[in-house]
Each structure stands twice: as structure tokens, then as C-alpha cells.
């Protein structure tokens, strides 16, 4: 049986590119400005509010806080990726979704020892796409335990 190649979603925070396994995404929500309630924010945990998703309130996490990246995208233009985790669904706030790409198009790239030590608090792996480093986004760094596909 021929297996379909895994696909990855490419998104951006500021000018930095990230990739995420498509399988870990439940839904991509646009135009979320009225749907996010900032009343439930817990900025120490990176939670900037809550989002009503399929009749359930889920936390919205802005990774730019932890990564110390600046976003020039207005909140009304940002996109929420709803992800699953063992602790329930949650929403990841990103600036822009660039699209979906087959895993085969990414080229492995090792982090040089000179960078590894300092960037390790933010990420641990990168891949190259068209000679651009794309950070492999690790959801478990931001919310809950590693995702479990249902």
C-alpha cells in the first residue's frame, strides 16, 4: 500500500518561519478578533485569552511572548491554529499561514554547536525550505503534553 507523504503547515511569527505537522492541527481559524476573550489571560503562561471552539472555551497562546519575537501583524489579521494535546484543545496564535508543504521538500539541517546552546530554550530543530531555516514548532513547549492523534 502506498502511504501519502506527511504534510507540514508553514506559518510565520514576525519574519521567522515555523513548520508544524498537519496531523496535529484540528482547524485553522481566521478573523478571530471578536472570538477571543482576553478576560482569561494568564500572560505568565503565554495565555492571551480564550476562544470558543465547538462549544468549548479553549486557551489561546501567543508564542511570541516566550520567543521574544515582535509581531507587526494586527490582532484582527492574526490566525489561530487549533491544536490537540493530551490536556485538551488549545489555540496557537500566529501572524500568517504560508501554506502546506510535503515533508519531502524540507532538507534536514543541523544546528551548529555555536547556536545550539542559546537557541535550545526556544527550539531544538530546524529544516531548510528553499534555503530558508524553518523552525520545527514543538507544541509541548507551550501547552500540555505531547499531542496524541485521535
Amino acid at each position: 500500500m502506498v502511504q501519502a507523504a506527511a504534510k507540514k503547515l508553514i506559518f510565520r511569527l514576525g519574519e521567522v518561519g515555523f513548520v508544524l505537522d498537519l496531523a496535529s492541527i484540528i482547524e485553522i481559524c481566521e478573523q478571530i478578533v471578536d472570538a477571543v476573550d482576553p478576560g482569561k489571560a494568564d500572560l505568565d503562561s503565554g495565555i492571551v485569552g480564550s476562544l470558543m471552539f465547538r462549544q468549548t472555551l479553549i486557551p489561546v497562546i501567543d508564542p511570541t511572548l516566550r520567543l521574544e519575537l515582535s509581531s507587526s501583524t494586527a490582532i484582527r489579521d492574526r490566525v489561530a491554529l487549533v491544536l490537540r494535546s493530551s490536556e485538551g484543545n488549545w489555540a496557537l496564535l500566529v501572524d500568517k499561514v504560508d501554506g502546506v508543504c510535503s515533508s519531502e521538500r524540507f532538507q534536514p539541517c543541523e544546528l551548529p554547536p555555536l547556536l545550539k546552546q542559546t537557541v535550545n530554550r526556544c527550539f531544538s530543530q530546524v529544516e531548510l525550505l528553499h534555503n530558508e531555516p524553518m523552525i520545527i514548532f514543538e507544541p509541548e513547549r507551550y501547552y500540555g503534553s505531547p499531542s496524541i492523534a485521535v
Binding site: G17, E68, C122, E132
Partner: peptide, 13 residues
Amino acid sequence: FLLPGIEKTVVEV
């Protein structure tokens, strides 16, 4: 390219 977590003395990668 910019990467998060790099020191301020590193301009880009």
C-alpha cells in the same frame, strides 16, 4: 534570517 533565542550579538543567521 532571524531566529528566536539567538544572542543580541548575533545579527542573523
